[in-house]
């Protein structure tokens, strides 16, 4: 009995492990991609105007903010506190002593009107017309960086999912192989009596399907529990995010089961074919 159950249990455990890994990879990937997308969207909705550090730059900041706020397509323009700018730029501009605030550019954050956002050139023209010497940054570089981060995240995630797919196919194949070996004498007799290969392979696939379903279900639950326990999705505790995660997890589980079953049926069919004289 133990010898009969051990391979079935092993298949279920393997299926659970790979489904849990696939679920974690999928949910982590979704969270990471959501964040980079949020970052990119946020960056696209604002621009930064920098006034070069020069005598009189401090006095020009409120005027520049006023000009920018009056430009069509701008929702709000606010000067950033110099100390805050210094703190933001500290990692790049200073060592342990902190940055020289006088040498830093004066920054104005511009929130664009989402319905009809102003273009970079619109802001540059408005500032130029007001006689203010400033550089407008539309965050193209940051947005490219966000896209690049998404691309870099996607490759290892797809790799992890592919690995799980391979593992699930192997688990299905392993389970079907054991089941076919256990039934070999009976299968041989059935084939000799004229049973079709399909009718011989189907019960093997059916038996394995039950084990794999249990494994995939367990793996999905493990992934769900681990995801909720970790800080991975704390920021997205909203109901919408939870629903999206559930749908993603259910899709991953269905995919995992399908893939494992394909592996199981392919192995069962191959083993039965080999038994036919």
């Amino acid at each position: 009995m133990t010898r009969r159950l051990a391979p079935r249990l092993a298949a279920a455990v393997l299926a659970a492990a790979f489904t849990a890994l696939a679920g974690l990879a999928g949910l982590a990937g979704q969270a990471a991609l959501d964040r980079t997308e949020g970052w990119r969207t946020h960056l696209a909705g604002e621009m930064t105007v920098a006034l070069r550090p020069a005598p009189g730059a401090d006095a020009a900041v409120p005027r520049a903010a006023e000009v920018l706020a009056g430009t069509p397509g701008v929702a709000e323009a606010r000067a950033l506190d110099r100390a805050r700018v210094g703190a933001l730029l500290a990692p790049w501009t200073a060592g342990t002593r902190g940055p020289d605030l006088a040498a830093l550019p004066r920054l104005i954050a511009v929130d664009l009107d989402p319905r009809q956002p102003a273009r970079r050139q619109d802001l540059a023209d408005a500032l130029s017309a007001a006689g203010i010497d400033a550089v407008v940054d539309d965050h193209q570089g940051w947005r490219r960086s966000a896209l690049e981060t998404r691309r870099r995240l996607a490759a290892p995630l797809i790799g992890a999912l592919m690995l799980c797919v391979a593992g699930l196919v192997a688990a299905g194949g392993l389970a079907a192989g054991f089941e076919a070996s256990r039934r070999e004498a009976g299968l041989r007799t059935r084939l000799r009596l004229g049973a079709s290969q399909l009718s011989c392979a189907a019960p093997i696939g059916g038996a394995v399907a039950i084990d794999l379903s249990v494994g995939v279900l367990a793996g999905g639950l493990i992934a769900a529990v681990l995801t909720r326990l970790s800080t991975l999705t704390d920021a997205e505790a909203a109901a919408g995010a939870l629903a999206a995660q559930s749908i993603l997890l259910a899709a991953l589980m269905a995919g995992a089961l399908l893939v494992a079953l394909i592996g199981a049926f392919a192995t069962a069919a191959r083993r039965v074919r080999e038994l036919e004289p």
């Binding site: 084939l191 000799r192 009596l193 004229g194 049973a195 079709s196 290969q197 074919r273 036919e276």
Partner: peptide, 15 residues
Amino acid sequence: AAGRARLRRRMGLVF
């Protein structure tokens, strides 16, 4: 293989 299986069904074998 399916054709062979159909043929086997028309035979009775005592092994």
